[in-house]
Design a protein around this nucleic acid. Sequence first.
DNA 1: TTGGCAATCTGTAACGTTTCAGTATATTGA
DNA 2: TCAATATACTGAAACGTTACAGATTGCCAA
Lengths: 350, 350
Amino acid sequence: MDRRRTENNEEALAQGRPTLKTLAFMTGLGVTTVSRALKDAPEIGAETRRRVQLVAKQIGYRPNRAGVRLRTGRTNVISLVLNTEREIMSFVSDIIYGVSEVIADTPYHLIVTPYSRSQDPLDPIRYLVETGSADGVIISRTQPNDPRARYMLEHGIPFATHGRTDMGLVHPYHDFDNYAFAVEAVRRLAGIGRRRLALLSPPVGLTYHSHTVNGFADALSEVGASEIPFNTVSIDHTIEQIRSRTAQVMRREDRPDGFVSSAAAATLAIVAGIEDAGLKLGRDVDVVSKQSSDLLHLFRTELLVVNENFRLAGSELARSVLGWIGGAAPGTLQSLSVPSEVLAYRRSLD
Amino acid sequence: MDRRRTENNEEALAQGRPTLKTLAFMTGLGVTTVSRALKDAPEIGAETRRRVQLVAKQIGYRPNRAGVRLRTGRTNVISLVLNTEREIMSFVSDIIYGVSEVIADTPYHLIVTPYSRSQDPLDPIRYLVETGSADGVIISRTQPNDPRARYMLEHGIPFATHGRTDMGLVHPYHDFDNYAFAVEAVRRLAGIGRRRLALLSPPVGLTYHSHTVNGFADALSEVGASEIPFNTVSIDHTIEQIRSRTAQVMRREDRPDGFVSSAAAATLAIVAGIEDAGLKLGRDVDVVSKQSSDLLHLFRTELLVVNENFRLAGSELARSVLGWIGGAAPGTLQSLSVPSEVLAYRRSLD
DNA sequence: TTGGCAATCTGTAACGTTTCAGTATATTGA
DNA sequence: TCAATATACTGAAACGTTACAGATTGCCAA
């Protein structure tokens, strides 16, 4: 160890937060060697490697994110892109917690990138890509022909979509099988004698709208039930809109005797509308609803529910993005969540 | 412009993303000048300043976050620290959206830093401070003597708490006036003839537990009603625990004829418990509940509610943190949200 | 002995930014 | 006219990291 190095780095010990320089001084090695020793590079002696790593742990060395990011371009950031007006409430927290679980023991941070109704959904994606603010992106409200997915594929940034696309392009996704949900829901309603069914679907334009609608239609013809059109509202509408539209349709002669609802909050509105029309849930009409937290049975015990686990979705999406970043083939990072069976609380499963 | 500079920076134009160097080359100025021109430094000529800013806008220059962060230590990041198990659902999304609104037109990013039941709540705070990962922090589940607030004050990192502390230390906060909530709730119940009241409180240990309990107690003596002890459960307990405990207490001789509930989800459980005991809401017992989204009246129209706006809380918290970062005095960045009056849906306000 | 080679380690440069300590030019006061 | 000063700009260094292109050592084959 020559005199010059000692002098130059004397101050390294005085610093608040340890850097590679600090470690280099303490171990008597060069900064380069320390850097490589910490990441288990093969050309560093086994003994040296262990010594460096020990000292690093001892003094609580943590790589400076800005340094790494500046040098390598890697941000160690995953961005979750959310619509601040339209996303379902519990959806958001559950997804976040799911993502958090997975990235907890990685160097990744989770940033939330919001966009509002007024904005082009592509805006936040462009921002992320242009500023290189994230290594991976998670988006929801996925469309069959999704410009965001296309854009990210073109720009080579790893991402995962919550929901599938239908563009002939392959990318990681996690989706709930909404086709199966609709099919099971209709079968169940038919099983308890319901014949005239209405569907409160996801908003038109999102991929899972057509999945749901297709499952609903296919199951209708399978069981020989008929559809009461209910497509002037979707789960994106307000509680009040859904409620009054439900009341309206329930006052008609050919009112539905069964509902399939794609969201729990919307189900509250449907039930309110049913009761506004002076009808009774479980007697005049049955409702099968998705829910993400186990609360609907407290609301009305007559409700039939199917659980959707958003926390799982968050975890799967995070795993997919990290996988892609890590070099896995995008096609291997796709998963589909199978709906739970239709659950009843008052009525026994028949 | 000498020959050397031209040669050195020729490549600046070939780059993907523009940097100060790119701008310097395009304008024929030095990097330093460009940097200062962009931040309206006084020693740059007005004409030059405008020219640089124009070109910067034209080519879509965005400062490299890693560069800034490495040089200045400023991260342009606000961290929202969340408990992944105990936080109330809608709370999380609303807070996030509230924060997002405020930081939308700032350079700040929002990162979510989770911690789990098993962890010391101080862990994520230590991590943030030690790694310098954020310029400001927002925490919730605030305690009267909060080690996290103390730690951050000691380490000089700006933060805001959702809920107040009681340590004689001054820091920014936003809080909902839970004392006033409890008082109004009790007065309302007393106003409709309820005399034996039970409180489902926030978990012991959090500051707003005592606020709520104090308001409840003070109002009880004010209206001359009595308390039916209900403190073996809190809103942190599971739906099932609250439900069965409610059913249990409702089967007793001296059962409560009124409930004050500090959370909407818990209220569902209370009502279920009441009905489990064969009693009827609005006839045998009334319930006043806080809610953050306007859904409880769909659940049971007899419920009395007080609205708490978490989105507002998020905005206020973000404003506070940014204010502190910007140099404002912490004492001026405190706000208290006044509860809405107790709202009824079936019964008219008397 | 020499050349070659593997095994370890090292200094320098660069990522993009801001700060420090200037330098050149024009302007002012006497 | 000269010095002093204000105005407008500049290069170099530094933040912490990693990649590149060596450098040193010891060992072995020829």
